[in-house]
Amino acid sequence: MDSTLIALVSMGFLGAVFAAGLAVASKKFAVDVNPQVAEVEEALPGINCGACGYGGCSSFAEAVVSGEAAPNGCPVGGSDVARELCRILGIELDGKGQRVIAQVLCKGGQEEAVEQSTYQGPRDCRIAHMIGGHKGCGYGCLGLGTCVDTCPFEAMAMSDNGLPVIYEDKCTGCGNCVRACPRDIIVLAGDEYGVHIRCRSLAKGKPTRDACSVGCIACRRCVKECPVSAITVEDNLARIDYDLCINCRKCAAVCPMNTIDIQDEKPVLKKKRSEV
């Protein structure tokens, strides 16, 4: 009992001495930090996950204040934090000031797309792509799940129909799947945008229709319908400019192939961010 008491007292005494010394030293060696850095750090999630590419929230805060990193660089905080950071720094959010997430631009799963052969090789899209793929469409998703394998956040899964599904709440926009896909089917888009032309086929209308029941046949009806001229047709494929799109869904209503997909949970944007 006695020795326990001595141990406690002696260690407590040492700890108190060192604590007092450090308290004095911290006053003496105090470094003036930019108050904005502290404010930015306060607004960040503060879990030091490192997903932004910096060592932690405090080094990211410094980088944001110095202008080295963009205010939307925090994938965990998303657009709310990005807006807050812009308010602190007094800068304008441009169209890119939001969280980006991956979008799969192909709807041709096993039901929709014609298979021209049976593929029995390694379960890797990159290998399947090298030998031309097993689908009638030379641009569509191969469905072997290479993107899902590379996702570090478990934000993707293969559907029963053989297409990758993205869980948008988990997606951080890291872009690993974009780089993994040999057919460039996955793109990154702002999380506000809910209208996507899910086709990458550059083939003409007839071969596209033969190979897939939901492919873009470049009929241009969406181009005519779009009130903000966000859609253009190039190389037999309609493409949407997310910077212009306002989620009005008019294009999806007229698409005869049902290629254009709407995510109902994303509201119509009244104005473009850049105009706010």
């Binding site: 001595i6 002696s10 040492l14 700890g15 450090l22 911290s26 060696f29």
Partner: peptide, 25 residues
Amino acid sequence: YNLPYLQNVAFILVIASMVQLVEMF
């Protein structure tokens, strides 16, 4: 006081405090 078993704890305490000091400096 015959406390050799506290060596590691006590020494780490010293080292950690000194490192804090150096870091601030």
